[in-house]
Design a protein around this nucleic acid. Sequence first.
DNA 1: CTTCATGCAAAAAATTTGCATTTTG
DNA 2: CAAAATGCAAATTTTTTGCATGAAG
Lengths: 144, 144
Amino acid sequence: MKNKVSYEFLKNILVKKNLKVTHQRLLILSLIRQFGHLDIDELYAKITVDYPYISLATIYKNISTMLENGILNEVKIGGAKTKYELSTNSHAHFICIQCKKIEDLDINVDCVLDNFNKGSVASVNVLIYGTCNACQPKISKKLS
Amino acid sequence: MKNKVSYEFLKNILVKKNLKVTHQRLLILSLIRQFGHLDIDELYAKITVDYPYISLATIYKNISTMLENGILNEVKIGGAKTKYELSTNSHAHFICIQCKKIEDLDINVDCVLDNFNKGSVASVNVLIYGTCNACQPKISKKLS
DNA sequence: CTTCATGCAAAAAATTTGCATTTTG
DNA sequence: CAAAATGCAAATTTTTTGCATGAAG
C-alpha cells in the first residue's frame, strides 16, 4: 500500500460490503485501481512481484466475490481475456485494436435508448473499437 | 438443410471466403442463423441431435476460422459464455437479465460518438442489459 | 489428385473445489 | 473464539493441437 489515504479508501470498499480486509484483497484492488483494467493473468503477474506467494485460486475466489458484491465490474472484450475494473457508473470503453489499450470514456450513452421499447433497462455497456491517436501514425506508415 | 434457398444462401457465405462447403459448417451456420445467438455448448448440443458424431474440436476450429473470415461475430456477455452470431452491420443487443434471451436491436448507436476524439473508430458495440417485456410481470410479482 | 477439413485422442490452459491452516474482527 | 479467507493440490472444465483418414474442389 503506497499511503494511508489509498489504504483507507480501498479498505472502506471492503468494509462497506462486510468483507474482511486482507492483504491479498487490498493488493488486488490497488492494482486494479492503478492500472484501470486487468485480466486474471496480468493481475497475478503484478501481484507476485510484491507478494510472491499468493495463490491463483485466491485471486479467482476474490474476483468472484468482488463481482458478486458489485465492487468490481467485468469488461469482456473481443479477442482478449475478460478484464476487471472498479465499478463506476460509466461503462463506456475505447479499445485500441493496435495496442490493445483500454480507455474509459466519459460519454453519455443514454442516447442509444431513444425509442427503446424492448423492456426496462438496467445498464448500458458500450465498447468502441478503433485505433487510438498514439497508434495512428504507425498505421499510416504501414499503408504507405 | 431445410430447403434449397437456405442451403444456397449459407453455401455462398462459405464460397465467397474460399472455404470448403462441408456438412458440419452448414449445420453450424444454419443453427446460428435459426437461433440468432449460440455459444459453443448450445451449438454442440443442437448439432448432435441431427448429427451425433461431430467432434467438438471441429466446432472450435470452424468457429475460429469463421471469426477470422468475418462470417461470424462474437458477442461477449457478462456472466455468460461467449455467443456467436452471423455478422451483420448492427452490433446492438438487448440482454434480458431474467431469462437471458438476447435480442438484436436495430438502433442507431452512432450518437455515442458525438465529441469522440480518442482515435479513429472501427466499430461500436452496444449491450443493453435489462428486463424484457415478457419477464416484466414476473418481477413485479416478486416485489409485491 | 491436391488441398483442406474432420475426428480422435492427448495435451495444454483455465477455472473450481475440498480441506487443513491461518487470519480477521 | 467464531467466522471467513488463504493456499495447496487435485479435480473439473474449456480450449487447442497433432496427425491419420476422409471429403471437397
